[in-house]
Structures are given as C-alpha cells and as structure tokens.
C-alpha cells in the first residue's frame, strides 16, 4: 500500500516536471533571437514566401496556441517533424538516445570505479603523504571541466600517444550486424568482441573526460565518510577479530559510508548527462548531445523540444533510480 502510494506520487511529480520543462523550452526557443524560417529560405525570398512557410509549420499562430497544438500531438505520441531533416522527431531522438546512454553509463562506471578506488586508497593511507597526493589529484580532477579534460585527452592519447580514436562512435568502414542502436551492448551479446574493442576505443576518451570530474567528487566525499566510519565501534571490533585494515574498510565501512555518496552520484550523474552535449561535439560522437547542438544551430524547434524533454525524462529517471537504490542499500529504510 505504502509503496503504491509513493510510486503514484513519484509518477505524478515526474509528469508535472516534464510538462513544466516542455512549457519553458517551448517558450524559450521561440523568444530567443533567430528563427527557423530565416535559416531555410534563400536570400531574396518575399514576405509572402515567409508567411507561407510560417503557416506550413504553424508558426503563424500565437505561442499558447502553438503549444496547445503541439501538446495535443505529443499526447498522441507525435513530437512533430524535424524542420531540417523532415523526419519525425521521436524516431530521430530515440535513434540517438542509445549512443548517449552507452556513453554516459560507461562514464558513470568509470567515475565510480576510479573515485571509489581513490577513496578506499586514500582512507587506507590516511595520515600519510600519499593521502595528501590523492587530495591534490582530487582537487585537480574537480576543478578542470569535462570538455577541457577532453582536449587534454585528445592531445595525450590521440596525438602524442595515439592509442584511442578521437572521433566518431565506430570505425566507418566496419560492417555492423546490429539491429538496435545499443552498439556496445549488442556487440557484447553477439560476442563480436572485435567490434566491442573498436567501440570502446572510440568511447574511452569522451567517457573518461566526462568521468574525471565526477570521479574526483566521488573520491572526496566517499573518503570523507569512510574516514569517519573506520573509527566507529563496529570497525574497531572487526580489527580485534584479526581483519587487516583494507578488509575493514571494504567490508565494514564501505557499505555504510556509501549512502551519502550515492545521493551525490545521482545529482552529479545528471550533470554528466548534460556534459555529453559538449563532449560528444568535441569527439564527433553521434549521440543526442551532438544532435542537440545541430538542432540549436539550425533553430530546429521541434527537434530541440524533443531532445530537451528526453533529457528531462532521463534526469527524473536517474533520480528515481537513486531513491530506489538508497532504499535497497539501507536496511532501516527497507523495513520502514
């Protein structure tokens, strides 16, 4: 009962959030300077041409009217047609989503592994010089933004020591046997590890660029809570049982120290997804973010709306996932 009520409430707030986002985006893209009609017409087009095109895309009506028409269509699953490609927005956006999801999740996994390792290492080496070194590395990781990491990585692993591909999602001449857009996932399922390697070779640098700032934040917060937890009574008791320090940190302290970090990862993961917009552009990675920039440049209003709403949906889903993991990891919440 309790669970059903909470679930309904969450669903309702998600819907309200999405509608709010839709309203704001709809208005903003129409208020900012520049309009799609001007981008489409050749120089020397007459006022009559402009009016005709405006009518064709429904841009001659007032903004509230336009919104109601668009919203009614959305309720029927129709997000409109992209002005530049003349294809349905929903199909375009869903076609690019898997690429961005794979990239973000890979970045998240890298951030958690790297940040977690640094936190445990820093706790293990607390009160030594090595800990100060880890703190400095964290400070750098946190203060350099993802796109700058991207540029640095391109110079390091793309130019000076070219081990990773610097652009695209996959080597173009390769034959892809995939039926979905989840290339990485599918390549693993089909046991085509040659393709997995190629995909990871392309994803590694953009994913790492996105992961580094998050890894540093995870490392710092997790280390702080680990250092508090390793002095608690149950950790001391575990030491008297004969466990070495690393076991005490991993088995006793980590499960309890991870909770505050988890909430933070949720919030930060949404920033990471936001970061894909510019990092995908940097690496010419064919994802949603790259498409978003093209859409903005071309003032492709329906496409921008579709992309932003999809991002908003992703953010709310991430937050929901965090809440659920939190309840799962904390037995006291689970039983309540």
């Amino acid at each position: 009962m309790q669970f059903a009520r909470v679930a309904c409430l969450r669903l309702l707030t998600t819907l309200i959030t999405l509608i709010g986002v839709a309203v704001i985006v709809f208005i903003v893209v129409r208020v900012v300077p520049g309009n799609p009609i001007a981008m489409m017409l050749p120089p020397g087009a007459t006022d009559a041409d402009i009016e005709r095109l405006k009518a064709l895309y429904g841009l001659d009506k007032s903004i509230p009217q336009q919104f109601l028409i668009w919203f009614a269509n959305v309720l029927h699953g129709d997000f409109g047609t992209s002005i530049t490609t003349r294809q349905p927005v929903l199909g375009l956006v869903l076609g690019r989503l898997p690429a961005t999801l794979e990239l973000s999740i890979m970045a998240l996994v890298m951030a958690v592994l790297l940040g977690g390792t640094l936190a445990v290492l820093g706790t293990r080496l607390r009160r030594t010089r090595a800990e100060a070194g880890i703190d400095i590395a964290n400070g750098i990781g946190m203060s350099v933004p993802d796109f700058l990491w991207g540029l640095l990585l391109i110079v390091l692993f793309g130019v000076l020591w070219p081990v990773f591909q610097i652009s695209g999602r996959v080597t173009p001449r390769l034959e892809l046997p995939f039926t979905s857009q989840f290339y990485l996932f599918e390549s693993i399922l089909r046991l085509r590890f040659d393709l997995t390697r190629d995909l990871i070779g392309h994803m590694f640098m953009p994913a790492l660029a996105l992961a580094l700032p998050l890894a540093a934040i995870i490392a710092q917060l997790l280390k702080q809570s680990l250092k508090e937890t390793v002095n608690l009574d149950y950790a001391v008791l575990a030491r008297t049982k004969g466990y070495p320090e690393t076991s005490v940190i991993l088995a006793e302290a980590l499960p309890n120290a991870v909770l505050p970090t988890l909430t933070l990862i949720g919030v930060q993961f949404t920033f990471l997804i936001g970061g894909t917009v510019i990092v995908e552009r940097l690496f010419s990675y064919e994802g949603l973010g790259n498409m978003a920039i093209d859409a903005v440049i071309n003032r492709d209003l329906p496409l921008i709306q579709g992309i932003v709403i999809l991002f908003a949906l992703l953010f709310t889903l991430v937050n929901l996932a965090v809440d659920m993991t939190y309840a799962f990891l904390n037995p006291r919440l689970r039983h309540a």
């Binding site: 008791l237 008297t240 049982k241 006793e252 499960p255 309890n256 990891l329």
Partner: peptide, 15 residues
Amino acid sequence: ALIPQDPLTALNPSR
C-alpha cells in the same frame, strides 16, 4: 576477543 561498551554502535547496521 572484545566485548565492547556500547551494543548500539558495535554491530554493523548494514550486515
């Protein structure tokens, strides 16, 4: 072995 002072904090809450 140790019998600790405070039973409320000496058991790991997540195990």
